[in-house]
């Protein structure tokens, strides 16, 4: 890892922003895709008819934002570290549904969340060591 900017240019902050934008876009895309679902049409396999939904367009805007910060992240952080960390979004979605929407989380799902957290800790640990040395 090279010298890198601090503040807003901090790649770890950008990684967090990228993850948040992905989270929002996933929810928007699912809502949008549901709104215009037309499984009888052959073209719908390509997903192109999804563009009829304004929510899909909003989702695309968030994807572009997450993409730009992700490119910035890639410049500074190795893929074997950045990508696994970016998947923290996969537990943020169910946790968000639990906290904000009052949805039920089964024991099995809690176990899955625990596994992801342990995995993230394993990936993040070498990072903490590298950061200490800097």
């Amino acid at each position: 890892m090279q010298d890198r900017p601090s503040g807003f240019g901090n790649p770890w902050l950008q990684l967090a922003l990228s993850v948040l934008c992905v989270l929002v876009s996933e929810l928007l895309l699912k809502r949008g895709a549901n709104d215009i679902a037309d499984p009888s049409s052959v073209w719908s396999w390509t997903g192109i008819n999804g563009l009829a939904s304004p929510l899909v367009w909003l989702g695309i805007a968030f994807i572009i934002a997450s993409f730009l910060s992700w490119l910035y992240v890639l410049k500074y952080i190795p893929l074997v570290i950045a990508f696994p960390l970016s998947r923290v979004v996969d537990i943020l979605v169910p946790l968000g549904c639990w906290i904000f929407l009052g949805e039920f989380i089964s024991t099995r799902r809690w176990c899955g969340i625990a596994l992801v957290v342990i995995g993230l800790a394993l990936v993040a640990k070498p990072v903490a060591r590298i950061e200490e040395r800097l």
Partner: peptide
């Protein structure tokens, strides 16, 4: 360590979405 971490994250995501 990174490999085990990645495997656990993958397994965890699968578990979360199965239930």
């Amino acid at each position: 360590q990174l490999t085990i971490g990645a495997l656990l994250i993958s397994a965890g995501i699968v578990l979360v979405s199965l239930s």
